[in-house]
Amino acid sequence: MTRQLCLAAAMSVTLATPALTETAPTDVAYTEGKIETSLTATPGDPANGITVMTTAALGNCVACHTIAALPDVQFPGDIAPPLDGVADRWSEAELRGIVANAKMTFEGSFMPAFYKTEGFIRPGGGYTGKAPAGDLPPILTGQQIEDVVAYLLTLKE
């Protein structure tokens, strides 16, 4: 990886601004729920994936899912299936599709779409309760989605 690319990747994580190389949420192609190609040019970082999944202001996956491999997470929710062994059940392309927009795989799912910017009823600007100031960003950046997928791929029974 070139130095420039590394810098761009680091910036996209810290500033949560989509890097130029990210496929925009509105341009993502789903085939039967799957997203075949990476949303970014940078491989996912599983360690950051854990951070995204366990941080309330980011993915907050543990609000609904338990993960036995992360015993330090306090009070995970029990709304959704445990994520243990998820990599045995789903391919990388399927997992990317589920995290980006689970409703493409599970019709009417309760699971929020983390990489979607349109088609909402009264969307707010984050958790402010007010209308968004400008364009609605996706909940997670493309790189954060890739990081989460990279971590999910480690969850084998």
Binding site: A56, N60, V62, A63, C64, Q74, F75, P76, G77, D78, I79, K103, F110, P112, A113, K116, F120, I121, R122, P123, G124, L136, I139
Partner: peptide, 25 residues
């Protein structure tokens, strides 16, 4: 029953479909 917001959740999503479960704590 309207699924509001970027999380696309209705009152029913939490209080009808998932009452009794834990959403985080």
């Amino acid at each position: 029953y309207t699924r509001f917001g970027q999380l696309e959740m209705s009152c029913a999503s939490c209080h009808e479909d998932n009452q009794g479960r834990y959403i985080r704590a």
